[in-house]
Nucleic acid binder design. Structure first.
Lengths: 334, 334
DNA sequence: GTGAAAGCGCTAACAA
DNA sequence: TTGTTAGCGCTTTCAC
């Protein structure tokens, strides 16, 4: 049971001072090339692993980045986190992930604990009920930079990477109109959050620009999953005047819609067109394959990371807003 | 720009010793109830956040658990990690996640860095090419407990939570036989890893127990995604003697198979039955819905966590093997 | 019940 | 180029 090796152990073995070892291992200060080689060799031989806890503690800041998402399971977040981790790793950072479970209270606790870990920076997508940014302000006090992606609080002076949701919805609705649809519905999850409202606005604007009336009974909200899409579709198709196109705020909901329509023998896209958001691979599993509004995750990751790194390196917080333009992926449902 | 608050700040404000503050905040040792209340109040007022870096450093061990998975994106891993994080959080642990990208070399680097963070424990599912457990042994030297889940190295003396893959495949094949299928194929990802081999064995055994011949050309391997399932299905259906049932090693592959069959106008399950593994919600998106072999993730999480915690609390490593029995979720593809 | 002392492993700053 | 000193914030041990 060999106990943990420290720089002092390495130093003792070599009959030198542990500070020299520290310098050599980090390629800092000046150490004779010869001793440096010797040190690295010996460190390796003894199986020395730097104690990050001590390092980070001493440096008053860790090399850990925190990512806070509502839920890790949806493909969009899983993919973002996965890609972000790769990017961070390549830059020498380790990532801690936190799930707020869409609960603002939990989100606040997470932020508080993040401070305890003296993370180097935070990337967050807030819960759908997070309107205020107040619980993020403590990060500012601690001088910990943070960047919002995809979902940001309504008013915040932090950097953010957002998707042009208005445009995404606008184009999706326009695509359906272009393929001859005239009565288009919108299924949202809760409206509270800006991104869902932006989509709603884009939807309405597209109708208006095409001289199509907007009908409140075609705008429904609530839920997150296939079953919710299924239920909403049922309600919509029971309307006096049925829709001939449905925009779903998430692919999963869109798939639920398609499943309902098919069950009722309604043709997709001939009778009713469907478009979702997120480019979830699940959309390829369904039949017909779901047309979707894609938000480039690699681009969002790159931007988020960049905006964060600038702040970390400058040691100052700043405010920059980056808008990602969405793109419609045409498949079979429109 | 208020600088960080430490226990000394709290102590000074109250005119007491910082050690007393430390004790009060952790409810350790004996502190007069009255002062304790005062201390907590003041700490809260000043916005004191314990410096975890210092705490963990001083304690020589962090309250961080590491989870190492090949890839965070597949639903199985995303869900496991998500659930595991919840369980860990409730027990006061924070989680660091790492992706090995199915690369054993990277996996080794991850383990090494984990030691630097003095994590309290590690839960890992190894890459499909990890056969030896040698790079995990360093954890043993550092007395860091670890548990394998789902995929473990071939020979290891660490605790593990595995699924009875033999049984899962056996039952899946039996189910197809019971519904009248006689010529059943198996699409695997690589064979290297034990879990995929176990499934192969279960497949073969089921054939044998039903006096059905085993035909090598019905066993194919390679790939991970829908497109791979699609391609394999194409090859299988071009055979002289076509299969009437296909067992896919992953749901995504199974869905690819179904997509191919439907494209060719082959009826599922009437002409060909399909069963996958993982209970990926994606399987519900496809039509017909995919019958699948489910491995209870909540059970795996609970077991993994428990096996890990026992070791952490005992301060000793031990070896326990927990087998989770799979369950077939019947949907429409068989 | 509270305080004083010591030290975890590391690195910045200064000295030689 | 190398060594010495000091201290990060916290907790354990021992003394009062």
């Amino acid at each position: 049971m060999k106990s943990t090796v420290t720089i002092k152990d390495v130093a003792r073995e070599l009959g030198i001072h542990h500070v020299t070892v520290s310098r050599a291992l980090r390629d800092t200060g000046s150490v004779k090339e010869e001793t440096k080689v010797l040190i690295k060799q010996k460190a390796n031989e003894l199986g020395y692993k730097p104690n990050r806890l001590a390092q980070n503690f001493r440096n008053k800041r860790s090399n850990v980045l925190a990512v806070v998402v509502p839920d890790l399971r949806p493909y969009f977040f899983a993919k973002f986190v996965s890609d972000f981790m790769e990017t961070a790793k390549d830059a020498g950072y380790t990532v801690m992930i936190f799930q707020s479970g869409e609960k603002p209270g939990l989100e606040k606790d997470i932020i508080d604990s993040l401070i305890g870990y003296r993370v180097a920076g935070v990337v967050a997508s807030v819960t759908k009920d997070t309107v205020q940014a107040s619980h993020f302000e403590v990060l500012k006090e601690e001088n910990i930079p943070y960047v919002f992606f995809d979902r940001a609080p309504k008013e915040t002076l932090a950097s953010q990477v957002l998707v042009n949701n208005f445009q995404g919805a606008y184009e999706a609705v326009t695509a359906m109109i272009n393929s001859g649809k005239r009565r288009i519905a919108y299924i949202s999850t809760h409206y509270k959050h800006q991104i869902f409202r932006d989509r709603l606005e884009g939807y309405k604007q597209a109708l208006q620009d095409n001289d199509l009336p907007s009908d409140d009974e075609l705008v429904v909200e609530g839920g997150f999953f296939m079953k919710d899409g299924f239920a909403h579709a049922e309600r919509l198709m029971n309307l006096e005047e049925k829709p001939d196109g449905i925009l779903a705020v998430r692919d999963e909901i869109g798939i639920g819609v398609i499943k309902f329509l098919k069950k009722k023998g309604i043709q997709v896209p001939n009778d009713v067109a469907v478009i979702g958001f997120d480019n979830d691979p699940m959309g390829i599993a369904c039949e017909p394959e779901l047309t979707t509004v894609q938000q480039s995750i690699p681009l969002m990751v790159a931007s988020s990371f960049e905006l964060l790194l600038v702040q970390i390196n400058n040691g100052s917080l700043n405010f920059e807003k980056k808008i990602i333009e969405p793109k419609i992926i045409y498949r079979g449902s429109v």
